[in-house]
Design a protein around this nucleic acid. Structure first.
Length: 429
RNA sequence: GUGGCCGUAGCUCAGUUGGUUAGAGCACCUGGUUGUGAUCCAGGGGGUCGGGGGUUCGAGUCCCCUCGGCCACCCCA
């Protein structure tokens, strides 16, 4: 093929386009019923906006260019900076709390792999202006609500939760000095990519005694079910896990404990999360994270706004679609179905096709007809079935004037119907 | 951005140690039969073998470069 699409991009043929729309509708429906309002911003922003949040290093990870006036711009690699900018510039006049969602397409100049492309969709929900675990839990509830909407169950996926402050407390208790905490987070993040010896060595360099290293390893590899923090207290030797306990209570109050578990190995980008952090994973753990989020209480300030607590998450379409396909939950075709499909079995009756089609369409029906010239009814019915039509209207020479044969392709029932009542016949079915 | 594997029709693939006009199944399109979604029959479109260069009398096959895909790093906002 001489003209290939750019690396890491996709073409959306009708079926793929229909799936994208289906997913977007699900995201929107769930967002709205959870009380979020849709927003959007520009597809490109000034490059500086992304440097504020992520530093100079981010420049290599995104698509950027200069406009004709020499302004440095970048295609959006995430929505959060735009959101923060929008909130900061109107913070005083916006009703609190701010609950916004967005379903942007984003571009990142990364090397594509399974589950990671250069252009993708991402669902974002953010709840700004509410401190406390209830807001965190509501965000996670919204995420779980979507999973249910798509037919997923706790056996398929799990929300893995951690908490910056709690982990900090645990690490300190284990003997990690203040200035080594970031290194410890990093070690926590990459624990699965290291062999045991390298891990032990790195851990002991953090200032932990041998038995503390062992305990550290045990703690960060263990999964604690939601609703049973006592075990974590016991293993960490702490009396209280503070913020995590409040979150635990709220998750149970929302009734989503089955979907959640605590995994202190969940770290996320060190940059800006300040409290709760979470990721959604497929249960086998084979694929990359399906969604990620957490609390970022300093971000709005960073963008020149007032101090406002915030919590949110993002979910991409790529891994989600792969997981649904893997679990057999991907609907095979969500393209719009025609209400009626008109065929004619004689040259004489065929002359009525355009007028009947026009009439049905004017009445709001999705009406199609066969472009085939054959009068073979079997082939015409197949044409209708291929189009996935609900009904076939058959025009022939034997049916009295003003009436047509209508066949229900689902039930195979066929009856004679007056043309005037066609629309209502189809609508009632 | 670094490294490894891969690239023949829309899809799954075949294609002898380099040797005529590159094939099959499915899909798609046209027509026919039995005329109510099946079956069957006939025909058709579509590939500069990812692209470019080189070796050779001759390259889908060997070499180099490049583009794209997958995997591991980096990163994962």
């Amino acid at each position: 093929m001489k003209l290939q699409g750019p690396r890491g991009t996709r073409d959306f043929y009708p079926k793929e386009c229909a799936w994208q729309n289906f997913l977007l509708e699900a995201w929107r429906k769930v967002s709205v019923r959870n009380g979020f309002e849709e927003v959007d911003g520009p597809f490109f922003e000034s490059l500086d906006l992304y440097k504020i949040k992520s530093g100079e290093g981010i420049v290599n990870e995104l698509f950027h260019f200069e406009d004709r006036g020499g302004r440095e711009l970048a295609i959006r690699p995430e929505f959060t900076p735009t959101l923060a900018r929008m909130v900061a510039s109107k913070a005083n006049s916006l009703q609190k709390p701010i609950k916004w969602f967005c379903v942007p397409n984003l571009c990142r100049a990364e090397r594509p792999q399974r589950g990671r492309l250069r252009e993708f969709l991402q669902w974002n929900c953010d709840l700004i202006g509410v401190d406390g675990a209830m807001a965190d839990a509501e965000c996670i509830f919204t995420l779980v609500d979507l999973l249910r909407e798509l037919g997923l169950e706790p056996q398929h996926v799990r929300v893995k939760i951690s908490h910056r402050q709690t982990v900090r407390t645990i690490l300190t208790k284990l003997g990690v000095a203040e200035d080594k905490l970031l290194t410890a987070f990093d070690l926590l993040d990459r624990r699965d990519k290291m062999d045991a010896d390298a891990f032990t060595k790195a851990a002991s360099e953090l200032g932990m005694a041998p038995e503390q290293v062992e305990r550290f390893e045990q703690i960060c590899r263990f999964r604690y079910p939601c609703g049973s923090l006592a075990q974590m207290c016991e293993q960490t030797g702490l009396d209280s896990l503070h913020e995590l306990e409040e979150l635990d209570a709220q998750l149970q109050a929302f009734g989503i404990a089955d979907w959640c578990e605590y995994d202190l190995g969940i770290v996320r980008g060190l940059a800006y999360y300040t409290g709760t952090v979470f990721e959604l994973h497929e249960t086998s753990g084979a694929m990359r994270a399906m969604a990620g989020g957490g609390r970022y209480d300093k971000l709005i300030e960073l963008f020149g706004g007032p101090s406002m607590g915030a919590v949110g998450f993002g979910m991409g379409d790529v891994v989600l679609s792969e997981v649904l396909a893997d679990k057999g939950l991907m609907p095979q075709d969500v393209s719009p179905r025609p209400d009626v499909f008109i065929v004619a079995t004689s040259d004489a009756s065929a002359t009525q096709v355009p007028m009947l089609t026009a009439s049905l369409r004017e009445q709001g029906l999705h009406a199609r007809f066969s472009y085939k010239t054959t009068r073979n009814l079997g082939k015409l019915l197949k044409d209708a079935a291929n189009a996935r039509s609900r009904f076939v209207v058959i025009l022939d020479d034997d049916t009295p004037n003003g009436q047509v044969q209508v066949k229900d392709l689902q039930t195979s029932e066929q009856q004679t119907v007056a043309i005037e009542s066609l629309a209502s016949h189809v609508a009632l079915a």
